[in-house]
Design a protein around this nucleic acid. Structure first.
Lengths: 134, 134
DNA sequence: TATTGTTATACTCTATAACTATA
DNA sequence: TATAGTTATAGAGTATAACAATA
């Protein structure tokens, strides 16, 4: 008698597999999946502070510091004090950062559709959204 | 313009939320979600070696050592050398371990149905299975 | 006083390498 | 020689606490 995998196992390994695939696909652009998530938040909006990015991604602000340190070192993002509130940093993609991100976005989309081949991606997303809101 | 969450974000937080809920629900039984996963493998089959359990769960055998150390300390599992191959340990639930597991299984099932309320659990499982096999 | 960013630190999780014993 | 279990160790990943600058 073999038993069906527990839901926790399925969720863990689905996440793990996707993270591995995206990390591999993004590696040529000098970023990983976590970096991409932060850049994605920064790319399509008004400039944000570090804390706003961290809250959007539900990660700690101290984690954001290290993540942005690395992206800044690579010349992908820039930080400057917010002129209207000098406690804050305005974080923005650099020009080359945006180029890298645009290319990374194509790679990410490719991984995502390959990963979702064989399932209804729209519905799967909706289901996951529901589970997060529950 | 707000952007839909990335698939990686959804997978990460769905897993995280479920892990948090199960850890909380299992805490009264002295185990967490990872422990439960191992016990679940051990509970409904013939006795297994540590390595077989580790492979079933796709975790490293060194991780399994620490996990079983803790469960053995709590009297939930026992280890003894396999008489037919003394390199192996036969791992089994103790009597009290099985009682704890039976109760934990009820709690886990409760968390699972609460978590899946509002979605088609059968289909969600099938989708996750597909994604793992991809 | 409260907030933002930073640093130092610690804790969890997990894997790799090397060892022991058995085969 | 190879395998199972163990130990020591190290590397991610992330969080908590304390501090500096600013509001």
């Amino acid at each position: 008698m073999s038993t069906a995998p527990a839901l926790g196992y399925l969720l863990k390994h689905a996440h793990l597999r996707f993270a591995t695939l995206t990390d591999e696909a993004l590696e040529p652009f000098g970023i990983d999946g976590k970096d991409f998530g932060a850049l994605r938040v920064l790319a399509r909006r008004e400039p944000m502070s570090q804390l706003e990015v961290a809250r959007t991604l539900r990660i700690d602000r101290t984690t954001m510091v290290a993540l942005l340190d690395a992206l800044e070192r690579k010349g992908i993002v820039s930080r400057r004090p917010d002129p209207t509130d000098r406690r804050k940093n305005v974080v923005e993609l650099t020009e080359s950062g945006r180029e890298a991100f645009d290319a990374a976005e194509v790679a990410y989309a490719g991984v995502e559709s390959a990963f979702l081949a064989g399932v209804d991606g729209q519905q799967f997303r909706r289901t996951l959204q529901t589970l997060l809101e529950g």
